[in-house]
Write a protein that binds this DNA or RNA. Structure first.
Lengths: 229, 229
DNA sequence: GTTGTATAACTACCATACTAGTATGATTAA
DNA sequence: TTAATCATACTAGTATGGTAGTTATACAAC
């Protein structure tokens, strides 16, 4: 039961979404560690809601492979599955390579400005060492690209598909490896886009999304028990 | 309420999944036409189950954008959204181009044989004019490629993301346009794979997934009311 | 010590009752 | 005739009770 916060601030209107976002946050941030056993009843009591919305939140999280539901038995926070991480990465790489090419043509001045602003904020996070915020800005950066290409639903799909990838990203930030590389790459991608250098932008993006890959093994050593197999 | 079958054969164990697959089938097959209004209570009575599993099936279908749920108001089968179709197609194209390249190396003899068998069956469907079966075989063909590359979950994700695309594919088959082109393309892709011609395979796949695109407008004219905007 | 079994304490699943919004249509007033 | 209001009949959202299946433990037999 450890880690389930009781702060009751509803982000969204519906109870179901409130439970969903609360749990997802805690899972991605690894406050709810992989392997932790949880139950509908337990969560419903902690969050002071009935079991129905909790159950529905569980279903959604199970679809993202963040929870493993075993009928009549129990529910656990899944371990990080490296082959799932790889599939997520594979999807992101191939989609975003195409996106970044399109972005070279599609982005308007306002969106380019948004990217620039975003990068500045990332640099600020480097100084302040606030990795949570950096995590969000990283997502935001990529999201802007998808918005510019009118493919926001594609982005949402990727986000759903990449929960395992996200937990690894979070680990990487916490483990305090070179954040600056990440920001530098964003910067590079931005410049290639605004210069409309499609091939370079694509290559840079591909490299960017291979970063995590390299650190997989290291992280698995550092945090065994978070991983399966 | 038209179109909601009452045959009570459980494919899967859980009531929830039974409801989910029943409804999804009917939506993709356009038995439940876009725009149709349905309600939890109505479906639960027809299928003789309680509202809870129906509700949970609704949630899942809503996540795939096949149902639009309006709180305290009602639920409808969504219209086919061409921009969603395009996003689905975009994803498939970029992922499957990468997959088919990998497939040139990754597929073993057994899997190549599976593809060959599949194509034979497709040809049979051409003669028999059974478009439902052809639809399934089409999916199966692509699925084999993903399996061969150890990316089955990527395929599942794509399937989820492509419900709108699927409805258009179904329309295309029903509207009885040249099915033989489709089968011929599968054949071509197969040969490029077994000959390990990566570039040609990729190009062929890209073309294959652009087919639907061309017929969009035609189908929209033929079936207005199925589409939004 | 090991194995088999009964049982008690869980679990998620499903059914149903209740709540609170929303749309609609009749009624009334202008 | 038109516009506003209220009653009513819907809807999905939430709460809760009961069921059937699983797991773990205690204890008996070997």
């Amino acid at each position: 039961m450890k880690g389930i916060s009781t702060t009751n601030t509803r982000i969204n209107g519906s109870t179901r979404d409130f439970v969903y976002y609360t749990l997802k946050d805690q899972i991605i941030n690894l406050e709810l560690e992989p392997g932790t056993k949880i139950s509908e009843k337990e969560v419903s009591e902690k969050l002071k809601v009935s079991r129905t919305p909790v159950r529905e939140a569980f279903l959604k999280l199970a679809q993202e492979d963040l929870l493993g539901v075993f009928p009549q038995s129990g529910t656990i926070v899944t371990q990080i599955d490296l082959s799932l991480v790889e599939e997520g990465r594979f999807i992101r790489e191939n989609i975003e390579k195409a996106i970044v090419r399109e972005a070279c043509e599609a982005l308007d001045d306002d969106q380019l400005f948004q990217l620039e602003t975003n990068i500045r904020l990332q640099e600020l996070c480097l100084e302040k060492e606030s990795h949570h915020k950096l995590f969000e800005l990283d997502d935001e950066f990529h999201k802007i690209l998808f918005e510019g290409c009118n493919k926001i639903r594609t982005w949402n799909m990727i986000r759903q598909m990449n929960s395992h990838f996200d937990r690894l990203r979070m680990l990487r930030l916490v483990a305090d490896h070179n954040w600056s590389v990440l920001v530098a790459q964003h910067k590079e991608i931005f410049h290639f886009i605004s210069d409309k250098k499609r091939d370079e932008a694509e290559a840079s993006m591909a490299l960017h999304l291979k970063l995590v890959d390299l650190e997989k093994g290291k992280l698995k050593e550092q945090y065994p028990g978070f991983f399966n197999e």
